[in-house]
Every structure is written in C-alpha cells, then in structure tokens.
Design a protein around this nucleic acid. Structure first.
Length: 479
RNA sequence: GGUCUCGUAGUAUAACGGUUAGUACAUCGGGUUUUCAUCCCGACAACGCGGGUUCGACUCCCGCCGAGAUCACCA
C-alpha cells in the first residue's frame, strides 16, 4: 500500500519552530516509503486568514528541503488543495449525513449555548450539547450551522505514538460540521479531505488526541476507514512547561535563515527533537533521516526547545559542509552575511578569509562581527595592546622594540605564504627570547585589534604583505 | 470539574527484568606555540514518591504527586 501523508497548516501567519515538525515527520515517512506528501491549506476560518501566509509556509518548506507531491504550486489529481475552494465537496458529504439521519440543522443561538454551558458549570457537570438537542429541527439551509448527531459509545483505537487508547462515551458530542457561514469546521473538513485524498497516515500534534473519538464516530457515520493515527508530542518552550508558541517568542523558521542557521542544521535539530534511531549518532543528513526514520521511535513526551544545541549543531554543519563540499560550497551560503566593508573585495579573497575563519562560526552571521579587519584597517587602540593579559607585563618601550624587530624580520621575508610566515615567526621567537603568548599576541592585536582571530601565520598570509606591514608600522609609530 | 496523555542529570535522549544507569549539548577543569574557536582528555550531574509482583525492577501492576492537552460556529 502506498503511504500518503499530509501537512495541513492554516494560513494564519508564519510557521514557527514549534509546529514545523508536523511537516518534517510526514515528509520523512512519505519519502522513506516512496509515498506521497500532500500539502493542503486549511483556510476555512476567514477571520483569521492572513494574506501572504500561504507563501510564507511554502517558503519555509522549500528552504528546509521539504518538497511536496500534491498541493499548491505543484497541483495534483485530488485538488483543489485550498479548503476554501472545496465547499461543494463538504456540502455533498454533509447531505449524505442528513439523509442518513446523522446530521441536523441547529437553530440554537450562541447566547442560548452560553446559557447551557453556564448552567452546567454551576452544577459542576460536563456540558454536552447532545443533551440539549432542539425538539423541532429546521431544514438545513445557509445561515444555520449543521451538527453531527452522535451515537455515544466507547471507542478503542491505536495511536502509532501513544499506543492503545480507550475512552468512554462521555466524550462524544454533537460537533459542528458546517458553520453558519457555509464553511466546514476543521473537525469535518479534514476527515473528508483526508479520505478523498487517500491519506494513510494522519500525523498531527497531540492536541487532537482528545477529539479523536469524535472523529472516529464521524468516520463511522461516513462509512470511511480511518487512517493510521500518529499523535506528535509538543515542543515545549524554553521556560515553563507549555508548548512552544509565538507568545514565547517562537521565531519563524525562516527567521533562523536570516540569523545564519543552515537549513540542514535546522532540519537535523528538529527531526531529532523527540525522535532518535537508538544509535548515538547526532549529525544526520536529510537522506540519513529518511533512511532511519521510524514512527515507533517518536518520543511520547514533550521535548523542550533548546537553542544552544541548535547552535552547536549549526557549527557542526558549517564545518561538515566545508570539509566535505569545500570552501566554495560553504561560501555560496554566506553571501548575505559579510560585513559591509567586504563589498569591494572579490570572491577569491572572501573564500580565503572564510577558509581560515569557518571553524570558529556558530552561525553564518558571525562573519559580520568576526571578519571586519580583513576588509578595513582597524582603529588603532593602544590600550588594547598595553592592557592585554600577556602584554601588560612589558613596558611600552619593550613593546616598541619587539614590534620593530618583528617588522624587520617580516619585511625581509622573500615569500609571504603560511609556511614561510610560520618559520619566520618561530625564528623570531628564538631571536627575541619571548614566549609565543607575548610575541604572537602583540603582532596579532597590532594587525587586527580584534578580540580573537585565526592562527597568526594564516591571518598574516590572507591579509597579505602590504597590509600586514602597513598596519604593524602604523602601530609602531603610535606607541 | 470531566476525559485523556506524559514523568531518566539543567536540556535532548539510551536502556526494554540482571550495566559502576550509556551518549550528546550546556557547565567546570586540563591539553594542542598567542587570542577565540575547533580538536583531544577529564569532572560534575538523573531513574518524581510510595506500595506491590519477582531471586532481582528505570523497566511489569496499583496508588499518590507533579506536569501537560482538551472540553469553540479556531484549527
């Protein structure tokens, strides 16, 4: 049997990291089994609809590398993939239910409903609409909501993540199928759509777990076989125990792209938050995730979102791409992240800088703070030299002498490459009888005035002879 | 309040009746000719509580406690 999964977001805003995982897992399952992933836009709530949200959702999925087989843009045989364009379909199914006596028009006003709820809460009994069914049910027509006429009984089912489930009849109620505006509720529409689209695995957040018996009752009344049900645990906010949401400052997935997080790292992190394959592997490519993914190893408790680990993983991925695909491949990802001062330099120079700095990056946007001195002469700040923890033991006169000796040595250098520079620096160490911490800190700071920088000989090589010597001379005369 | 779910170090997790309870991130310490990082080595740190069942329980059962979800003409 072909496996068909779906991701069915509402276009009410951006996708944040708290809910993108319910796109990742269906994607992995579909790809692993050579099945299909359907993207369906659940836009039946016109009040909450946000212009442009669909595009935002599509961008997010594309950036993460999650492509879909049916849905907006790509089309497919089961369209349309916007629920707002499918009202005829829902109404047709609704009429079947009316015919079989399993749905009825509900004339109760919202005020009456509130009154019923209030009564129940005062009596401390659960409110069930089915206890208040109207005596005379009008004919269903636009402007009146349509309710399901439930037949309360116990339900047992299997959830691929949560295990065997069971509930009593007290949770069954007459849920709204079609709203008075003619649009279906989620409760009704998703069941119809999943059935029409042939969805085999219904993967969604655990918040739907307690409504499942009502859905099961609907499947029954509709004479449909329910898909396999897979409830995904929540991702928890860094603070407290609530599920991560926009109120906790949950950023959009694409916002991380702006912050210099790689899509590979994001996918890796989120996929492994609440799932593992039982091995001690930490770094997974998309292909490895597809290969190793399994429903029965999805965690059944919520997992806390921890940005620190994401950052670590991103650093790993930056190095992985550099090591496996080369400097150019990594450079291609960095265009948006260089400091303004880098604008006038060519690609080759950028790549040289990247090649010696990449293993210090946690995010690509670190480039902005970490590479400025490669592109523009730093402001000379003698205090930084004098107060350095290795240099403060030396007098300013000593620093000046040392700097001048270094300049002489480096000026005499025939070849300005990493090896020659390393040799010269080592000789200088012997000649001046200084510790590396002293001599190298001096030169390093004089040339960069940065809190940290790559290995000295590499920094000098990339900076080049002219720039390096000019900066050293400028500092020597400023002491 | 009803119903349902969950509970291993700060965090993410491994274990599936027998281990000194493993790994990773974080934290702390050490090493690699400066710094920051990488890399390497080391340290700290956990089975919510109480009963059973069993020769033996993180693992099975029950109770409690704690946390969460849901009870919309939102999805």
């Amino acid at each position: 049997m072909e496996i068909i999964t779906r991701f069915a977001p509402s276009p009410t805003g951006y996708i944040h990291i708290g809910n993108v995982r319910s796109a990742i897992y269906p994607y992995l399952l579909a790809r692993q089994n050579k099945g299909k992933l359907i993207l369906r836009i659940e836009d039946t709530d016109r009040a909450r609809y946000v212009e442009g949200a669909t595009e935002l959702i599509e961008d997010t999925l594309k950036w993460l590398g999650l492509d879909w087989d049916e849905g907006p843009i790509v089309g497919g045989p089961n369209g349309p993939y916007f629920q707002s364009e499918r009202t005829e379909i829902y109404h047709a199914w609704a009429r079947k239910l009316i015919k079989s006596g399993r749905a009825y028009a509900d004339p109760t006003t919202p005020e009456q409903l509130d009154q019923y709820r209030k009564e129940c809460s005062e009596k401390k009994i659960p409110f069930l609409y089915r206890n208040y069914r109207p005596k005379n049910m009008p004919e269903w027509k636009p402007g009146i909501p349509l309710r399901f006429k439930t037949e309360p009984k116990e339900y047992s089912w299997h959830d691929e993540v949560m295990g065997d489930m069971h509930t009593g009849s007290e949770v069954l109620d007459d849920i709204i199928l079609i709203k008075k505006d003619g649009y279906p509720t989620y409760n009704f529409a998703h069941i119809v759509d999943d059935a029409e689209m042939g969805v085999t695995h219904l993967m969604r957040g655990v918040e739907y777990l307690s409504s499942t018996p009502n859905y099961l009752a609907l499947y029954e009344a509709l004479n449909l076989t329910p898909p396999k049900i897979v409830s995904l645990p929540h991702i928890l906010a860094p603070q407290g125990n609530k599920k991560l949401g926009k109120r906790d400052g949950a950023k959009s997935v694409t916002e991380y792209r702006k912050d210099g997080i790689l899509a590979e790292a994001m996918l890796n992190y989120l996929a492994c938050l609440g799932w593992n394959d039982g091995t001690e592997q930490e770094i997974y490519t998309k292909e490895e995730l597809i290969k190793n993914f399994s429903l029965d190893r999805i965690q059944n408790s919520g997992a806390r979102y921890d940005e620190t680990k994401l950052l670590w993983l991103n650093g790993q991925w930056i190095r992985k791409i550099f090591d496996e695909q080369g400097a150019e491949a990594l450079y291609e990802r960095t265009h948006a992240f260089w400091p303004d001062s880098a604008k006038n330099y060519d690609d080759q120079y950028h790549i040289k800088v990247l090649a010696i700095i990449y293993d210090r990056l946690k995010t690509l946007s670190d480039l902005r703070e970490m590479t400025d001195y490669f592109f523009v002469d730093p402001t000379i700040n003698i205090d930084l030299l004098v107060n350095n923890k290795f240099l403060k033991k030396l007098s300013e006169a000593e620093l000046e002498t040392l700097l001048k000796k270094s300049i002489t040595k480096l000026t005499a250098l025939k070849k300005w490459d990493a090896d020659s520079l390393q040799t010269a620096l080592n000789e200088l160490l012997a000649e001046t009888n200084k510790k590396p911490a002293e001599l190298f800190s001096l030169i390093r700071i004089a040339v960069s005035f940065a809190p940290f920088s790559p290995a000295l000989h590499l920094t000098l090589e990339v900076l080049g002879r002219d720039v390096s010597l000019a900066r050293l001379n400028a500092v020597a005369s400023a002491i």
